[in-house]
């Protein structure tokens, strides 16, 4: 099972100061401890002083604790959340250009409809589409497009937020 399937991966959401070189510090720390980063998404936050890194790593639990603690020691790292896949909502964006001569374009559009993907651009014998979804759904879509011939594919790496509380608050609580 690959890490992209969610097998033995952990997602770390790391809030860092938005300063030059911070990404190198974080990436360097993973490299020094022998961890391979499966995917990494970097984005600004609502507070312009900070950025958010969503890092997917394939790991065992024990050394992960060490990496989190070492990460936390970086002066520019503000806080770290470890997101368990079952307790979080995960999304990933894929853009893909597929070979699609006019005769088979319809088949691809079927898939686009089924997956509620979006057509971004159409050429004579190629089509560019995008899909946002859970990483496994994006995997499925990519697998189904594969036989048609993928010309180019770009995935963002996943981003995630924790799932929300479902139970209503106790009406009798003060």
């Amino acid at each position: 099972m690959s890490a992209a399937d969610g097998g033995g991966t952990t997602t770390l959401v790391v809030r860092v100061e938005n300063k030059a070189g911070v990404l190198a510090r974080v990436a360097g720390l993973f490299a020094r401890r022998g961890f391979n980063i499966e995917s990494l998404a970097v984005a600004p936050t609502d507070d312009e002083r900070f950025s958010r890194l969503t890092i997917v790593v394939g790991v065992d639990a024990a050394p992960m604790e060490q990496v989190v603690k070492q990460l936390d020691k970086l002066v520019n790292v503000v806080d770290i959340r470890e997101l368990n896949p079952s307790a979080s909502v995960e999304r990933e964006l894929m853009m893909v250009t597929v070979r699609a001569n006019p005769e088979i374009r319809g088949q691809i559009l079927d898939l686009v409809r089924i997956f509620q993907a979006t057509v971004l651009n159409v050429g004579y014998d190629e089509i560019m589409v995008s899909l946002t979804g859970s990483p496994s759904r994006v995997d499925d879509f990519e697998d189904l497009l594969l036989p048609y011939g993928i010309v180019d594919v770009q995935r963002t790496g996943k981003v995630a937020l924790p799932k929300l509380v479902k139970a209503a608050p106790d009406p009798l609580a003060p």
């Binding site: 030059a20 070189g21 190198a24 510090r25 360097g28 020094r32 970086l74 002066v75």
Partner: peptide, 14 residues
């Protein structure tokens, strides 16, 4: 210098 010393300092600044 900051790249070279990143892993041997508590913190560094350019």
């Amino acid at each position: 210098t900051t790249g070279i010393t990143m892993s041997v300092t508590k913190h560094n600044y350019l």
